[in-house]
C-alpha cells in the first residue's frame, strides 16, 4: 500500500550548515555527543549510535590542482539488500514498505553482527543502563524518520535543508531528478556520478556526487559481504539440517536397537560385536 520512497541528496547544493544534524537530533531525541576538535569543520568522525547523521567535510584537490571543499550528508543508506537485515540473528532488523530499514529495539540483543557487516559502517551500538544500573546495548542508526513517513511527513533532515540539497519522494521521481541533475553538473564536475550502488540492490538514500565515491570516503563497489551470504543462506540452514539429521539418526538408532536387540548388547563373544565411539 505504502509507496517506496527515496531520499535524494545532491551534495553540490549542500552548503555545510549542518542543520540536518540538528534536525535529526531534535526529532529523534538523541543526546548530544561533544567531541574534540577533529582538525576540520567536521564535528564527528563518523555516524554513531547517538548521532545518526554527520556532515562530512572533505578537502579535495581536483584535477586542475584546485582545492575543493566537499560536503556530504552521511547517514544510513537503507539498502534494498541490507547486510544488517541478513545477519541479524534476532530478526530485529526489517524492511518497511517505504523502503527504509529499521531496527526493532525490543528484539535487538546488541550482538553487533549488523555493526560488523554493514558495508557503509553506519550502524553502531549504544549502551544504556536499565533501572537497576545494569548496562545493555542496542544497535542504532538512522531510521529515515520512518515514524514521520507513517504520518505522511518527510524525514526531518530533508525538511530542514534550506539550500534544497535533499529531496524526498517517490523512487522513480527521485531517480529522474538525480539523472537530470547529473547532466546539469557533468560539465563542471566531470567525475560526477549517481551513487546508488547495485551491489546492495540499490539504496533508498541516493547521492549525486561531484567526485568519485572514494573521494567522499564511500566504497566504490559496496556489496553484502560474501561471508554473510554463505553464512545465512547456506551454512546456517545446512547446519540446522545436519543437527536435525544426526538427531533423527540417533533416535532411529535408539529405536532400532530396542527392536533388534531386546536382550541387551551381547558383546565380547568369540568375535567382536564391537561398539564404536564413546
Amino acid at each position: 500500500m505504502a509507496k517506496e520512497y527515496i531520499k535524494y541528496v545532491d551534495v553540490t547544493k549542500c552548503d555545510g550548515c549542518r542543520a540536518c544534524m540538528v534536525a535529526c537530533k531534535n526529532w529523534n531525541d538523541l543526546p548530544a555527543e561533544p567531541e574534540e576538535f577533529q582538525g576540520s569543520l567536521q564535528s564527528h568522525a563518523k555516524v554513531t549510535a547517538n548521532t545518526w547523521n554527520v556532515l562530512n567535510f572533505i578537502e579535495h584537490e581536483n584535477s586542475k590542482g584546485d582545492l575543493e571543499y566537499l560536503f556530504r550528508h552521511s547517514s544510513c543508506f537503507h539498502c534494498t539488500d541490507a547486510a544488517c537485515e541478513k545477519v541479524c540473528p534476532e530478526d530485529a532488523i526489517s524492511y518497511t514498505d517505504f523502503g527504509s530499514v529499521v531496527i526493532n529495539n525490543d528484539k535487538c540483543v546488541g550482538c553487533g553482527y549488523c555493526v560488523q557487516n554493514c558495508p557503509f559502517d553506519v550502524i553502531s551500538l549504544a549502551t544504556y543502563k536499565d533501572k537497576n544500573g545494569k548496562e545493555y546495548r542496542k544497535a542504532q542508526k538512522c531510521t529515515m524518520c520512518t515514524d514521520r513517513l507513517e504520518e505522511g511527513m518527510q524525514p526531518a533532515c530533508v525538511v530542514t535543508c534550506h539550500p534544497g540539497a535533499m529531496q524526498f519522494g517517490n523512487k522513480e521521481d527521485m531517480l529522474t531528478l538525480a539523472e537530470k541533475r547529473l547532466s546539469e553538473i557533468k560539465e563542471k564536475f566531470p567525475n560526477a556520478n549517481i551513487y546508488n550502488p547495485a551491489g546492495v540492490g540499490g539504496t533508498h538514500t541516493i547521492y549525486v556526487l561531484a567526485e568519485k565515491p572514494s573521494v567522499y570516503g564511500l566504497p566504490e563497489k559496496p556489496k553484502v559481504p560474501t561471508s554473510a551470504v554463505i553464512w545465512k543462506d547456506y551454512a546456517q540452514p545446512i547446519g540446522k539440517l545436519m543437527l536435525g539429521a544426526t538427531t533423527m539418526a540417533v533416535m532411529a538408532g535408539f529405536v532400532s536397537n530396542k527392536l533388534f536387540n531386546k536382550g541387551g548388547h551381547d558383546h565380547g563373544q568369540d568375535e567382536e560385536g564391537g561398539d564404536s565411539d564413546e
Binding site: N257, G264, D277, E278
Partner: peptide, 23 residues
C-alpha cells in the same frame, strides 16, 4: 557458524553412542 554446526552434529552422535547406545 560452520565450526559449530559441524561440531554439534557430531557431538549428538558422540553423546548418543556413549550414553544411550546399548553396551
Amino acid at each position: 557458524n560452520i565450526g559449530f554446526g559441524l561440531a554439534i552434529a557430531v557431538v549428538v552422535g558422540h553423546i548418543y553412542l556413549s550414553v544411550l547406545h546399548p553396551g
